[in-house]
Computed example of a mutant assay.
Amino acid sequence: MSQYQQLLLLAQDAELTSPAARRATALARATGAGLHVLGLFEPHGLGHWQQEKDTDRHIAEQFGQFRDRLLEQVGAIGLDNTCASGQAVVCDDPLKDVLACLGERRPDMVISDLHKVSPLARAFGTPFDKQLMQASQVPVHVVPDGAAALPKVILAAIDTSLPEQGADFNQRIIRQAMAMALQCDARLHLLCAYDISPLFVADSNAASDWVEELVAALREPYDALADLYGVAPECRHFVQGAPVAVIREQVLDLAVDVVVMGIVQPKGLGKLLGDTTERIVNSALCSVLAVNRTP
């Protein structure tokens, strides 16, 4: 039985030729899942229309063309043994529209294109992909330009330094990664990056025993999870270093197509820098499947 029953694609282009559209269509074909396309229409060229009635008429005409073309393209997808459906909404409050669709459709995954935003803009604003990842209880799959239709290498990034409830969170991340790997016949790797900052080790000689104990305490649950889910020894990566840097390095070294990661609410300086998942998303090195901590 397919791991995926229903996929939701967010589309800002009625032609459905974007990387996310290609990924969503390929996943639906590979898994037999239903595909629903939510077209997010944004009016354009309104500066030439001064009177309100002219503006409203112009928006209605644009929206009608967008909706008709979107539904035509959805009908042309031609999925076997499953169905594709579509709807279009005027993008006044896209997050509200998407969350309403999630409540109605209850998909297994939301698939969206990456809209890259500068670090400065992210620091002083809240980009749509960040809002969606933090608000959605459904895993959000963000796909950048250049992504293959189907992934061949998937990396699950977990954090064994999390408190007790983190064990369930890590398992949820791994299960999402395994589901995608099984459906796409992809290779699954498991990564845990741990960072022991020298700021906390004033005397490295005196602290060596303490550091070894800490690393062992982090390694034990990692090995247990890798054993539990049958991760091949050559696909296990327990690496010291800052998580963002380690993940980026592994993505390049392993030719990773998708990183499956958790979403947590950043605190303190993290609010400015963005949490690890958001920073990996914005790097656009590969696709990201973001799993919310609250199921």
Rank of each mutant, 00 (worst) to 15 (best):
D80S: 12
L8S: 02
A20F: 03
R67L: 09
V110Q: 07
V281M: 01
A123E: 09
H237W: 13
L199C: 09
E104P: 04
A181I: 08
D97P: 02
A149Q: 10
N292Y: 06
P198H: 05
T126P: 02
P94S: 06
L95Y: 10
R279E: 11
P94H: 12
P43L: 06
C192I: 01
H44S: 14
A20H: 05
S287P: 11
D253P: 00
N205T: 12
C235T: 14
R29E: 06
V37I: 11
L285H: 07
G75K: 05
D113G: 10
E61R: 15
I280N: 01
D129V: 15
D113I: 06
A148D: 14
L289N: 08
L218M: 12
V259N: 01
I174H: 03
N81I: 08
A245N: 09
Q5H: 06
T17G: 07
L188H: 03
H36K: 04
L79K: 06
K116D: 04
V281K: 00
P139K: 00
A217G: 15
S197I: 04
L40M: 09
P163F: 02
L8F: 02
Q176L: 03
H237Y: 13
S18A: 05
A60L: 13
V89I: 08
S161Y: 04
K116N: 09
R172C: 12
G75E: 06
T160E: 01
L228D: 12
Q176A: 11
H237L: 11
L188N: 06
G39L: 05
M133V: 13
L162H: 03
V281Y: 00
Q131Y: 08
V281H: 00
D13L: 00
V244P: 01
A224E: 07
A177V: 04
P163R: 05
D93E: 12
E72T: 12
C83L: 14
L102H: 05
T276H: 09
L188V: 03
N81R: 14
V110F: 10
A28H: 01
D97A: 15
P295V: 15
D185H: 15
S283C: 06
Q62N: 06
A206H: 04
G39W: 04
S112W: 09
E42I: 14
A179W: 02
P139N: 03
